[in-house]
Amino acid sequence: MTIATDKATMLILAAGIDVGSISTKAAIVRGLRLLGTHVISTGYNTEQAAQRALAILTTRLSIDPSAIRRIVATGYGRKNVAFAHNAVTEITCHAAGARFQDNHVRFIIDIGGQDSKVIALDADGRVADFAMNDKCAAGTGRFLEVMARALEVDLDAFAKLAMTADQPAAISSLCTVFAESEVISLIARGEKRGNIIAGIHQSIAARVTALAGRVGWTEPIMMTGGVACNMGVVRALEQASGKSIRPAPLAQANGAIGAAIIALNAVGR
């Protein structure tokens, strides 16, 4: 995507809102400067979550909401955000967000709440191809949540526990429900938590690597979405692919940032 970089465009305020299945993210840019991001839980009412995320962020940044020239909504709830000027899919937004965070990125692995996807970019940063998981939640953030509950472990502790594994357990990569019952059997057998968690990370990695294989790897690779904050998954993906993967500095808000950049570009044009 080419972005106008003239002086006028650099003063424009634009916002992006990513209404995900688990969390809603807002981002505001002034020109190509990211002013801030905010993440809240989506809950039942997607429109309200979008409003709330943006309101909290504008208050925090002391921005008059009416000064925001354009808002782009993305994520699974993108069409429910009535106050947004338009809706763009998370695939296009993650591409724009990743390139904003690192202008060299050619491949994105995005693992969000209810889907995982891989996106290949051309040299100009445009989406060249993408693939998404099919209907099962295996390999998604929701999958990790289910597992964390079964293991009675806080998700934040996952990465650390995975480091203690001496022999990662084998866990199905095909179905969340089957995988959960496998984990419960492993718990019953007294398997170490670390080994189970490492096995879970490997199963996600196997699933995402298969998706990436369909599209074909290009490098450098960036990982976005909330799951990128879990270094255990990032390491498992690196092992499975044999490639270096960089988590986005602002992984969870990447889609919202991309949406804000797309909004900015639409005004600047």
């Binding site: 763009v88 695939i91 296009t92 989406v127 060249a128």
Partner: peptide
């Protein structure tokens, strides 16, 4: 029962965005 509207909706939208950008 084997059709997920929001998933297919997103895929088609993203695909059309890709074609439009091209």
């Amino acid at each position: 029962r084997n059709f997920s509207e929001s998933q297919i909706d997103t895929r088609i939208d993203a695909f059309m965005e890709l074609l439009e950008a091209g």
